[in-house]
């Protein structure tokens, strides 16, 4: 069967072959590009949708927050702790910049844009529980910051891990001050 058909299918000679090969190559390349373009929407549709992205930034009005007060807001599904620190708390945080027990050494000044406003993601870097300390009457731990009840991590007034199993400081999210009293997180 195949021999005669295959031979004839093989082309009419050198020139015919090269021409035909170029056409097939070009068509193949063109087609492959089309397949790629067709596959992209199927992949991109899993990326966050427009309504999810719309909730990916929040603007928080800082006016009602008193000195020494802490507030927790929801952002991208997790809590964000916003603290208006007293000068005493700021000093305490800065004094500890070179302490020996800093598990994840970081300077306080590198963790804030305005010293009185500490903004950190409220998820313990150990296994993901939400540390206590943002509400009135909460335990704050030995370093007067936050205390995670799950496995006993203690965070200080800069949100740094000082004691316990957590490996990293409370993360600082991306944020910008739109004005003195308005911050955009995300």
């Amino acid at each position: 069967m195949a021999s005669s058909a295959e031979n004839t299918a093989a082309g009419h000679g050198e020139d015919g072959e090269t021409r035909r090969d170029f056409l097939m190559l070009a068509t193949g390349a063109f087609g492959a590009f089309g397949v790629g373009a067709a596959v992209w929407p199927l992949i991109d549709q899993m990326n966050p949708a427009a309504d999810t992205l719309a909730l990916s930034t929040i603007e928080v009005n800082l006016e009602p927050i008193q000195e020494g007060q802490r507030v927790a807001v929801k952002w991208r599904g997790v809590p964000v702790f916003i603290t208006k620190r007293t000068p005493g708390q700021i000093k305490e945080a800065r004094d500890a910049d070179n302490a020996d027990d800093l598990i994840d050494p970081e300077r306080d000044a590198d963790r804030v844009k305005k010293p009185e406003w500490l903004i950190v993601i409220g998820v313990c870097t150990h296994l993901g529980c939400i540390p206590l300390g943002s509400k009135q009457g909460d335990k704050k731990g030995e370093y007067k910051g936050w205390f995670c009840p799950c496995h006993g991590s203690h965070y200080d007034t800069s949100g740094r891990i000082r004691k316990g199993p957590a490996p990293k400081n409370l993360p600082v999210p991306e944020y910008t001050f739109l004005s003195d009293n308005l911050v955009k997180i995300g």
């Binding site: 058909a5 004839t8 009419h12 056409l23 068509t27 063109f30």
Partner: peptide
């Protein structure tokens, strides 16, 4: 439309011997 045109040309080429 362009790709289909090219495919037609390829099809004719391959079927030419028959």
């Amino acid at each position: 439309i362009i790709l289909t045109g090219m495919l037609y040309a390829v099809k004719r080429k391959i079927w030419a011997d028959l």
